[in-house]
Design a binder for these strands. Structure first.
Lengths: 122, 122
DNA sequence: TCTATATTTTGATAGAAATGGAATAATGGA
DNA sequence: TCCATTATTCCATTTCTATCAAAATATAGA
């Protein structure tokens, strides 16, 4: 993935800056690559389907979620590479080169970023 | 710092999810612990003083900026520990709060609660 | 004190975002 | 085909957010 710009980071941050959406994203992260059908997410998040749909669209549009159809179900998954890109941006641009190294890292993505300042397993 | 909750992360994300504010925060990060007077920030960000004041208040309220008075000037500084806490939260939640030191743990079968007996696609 | 400078607050306005019920679409099975 | 299930879109409503001129506040120096 190309290095993230401020203009790219803002919509991703905005997508996460909402309690329901941040919660939904965490649920998707926990579900892993298998993902979850929309109805199950609505259940877990405790929001009516129309609201959930609205928030899933926001997450998708920000690149934080993907979806695939499976029968009558639409399965949503977390897009880890977008989150990794955001973390790289924040680490590179908002920590002034200070020791801001996170305590742990998630690199589910097979695609490896070339960002130097975030440590990643080889 | 105590571990950040989702309810703590949302207002911090919201503070950063705005072009002017993210830009201002980056400027403060670059300025380092010395900080910058409000007027200079307004200049650098290209926003009128009243707007800048609004955004600085948002950042301060989120814990991302601190301020001290110096004569007629109010010097703003970035609060790195808040950003560190946010990065830690996002990094931890990128893997569902599981210890993801082994990268493979994210690739393994995720822990998905199967409460319902309803049949769902795998 | 008076005056210039620095910043914040006020207040009005415009626009965006969130909510959820109802209607619509799409799919699979009988 | 018809029906039940799943999900999205439409819609009205409400609530937040951002903007910035103008007024207010605060400080330093003359």
């Amino acid at each position: 993935m190309r290095n993230m710009e401020t203009s790219d980071a803002v919509p991703i941050l905005a997508a996460l800056a909402q309690p329901t959406r941040l919660n939904v994203f965490r649920v998707l992260v926990q579900a892993g690559p298998v993902g979850l059908p929309a109805g199950r997410i609505a259940e877990l998040a405790g929001v009516p389907p129309s609201s959930l749909s609205f928030h899933l669209k926001e997450l998708s549009h920000a690149g934080l979620a993907g979806s695939r159809q499976n029968g009558r179900f639409v399965i949503y998954t977390a897009r880890f590479e977008t989150m990794n890109g955001l973390l790289a941006y924040l680490t590179d641009n908002c920590c002034g080169g200070n020791p801001c190294t996170p305590v742990s890292s998630c690199d589910l993505q097979p695609v490896v970023k070339k960002t130097a300042s975030r440590k990643e397993p080889a």
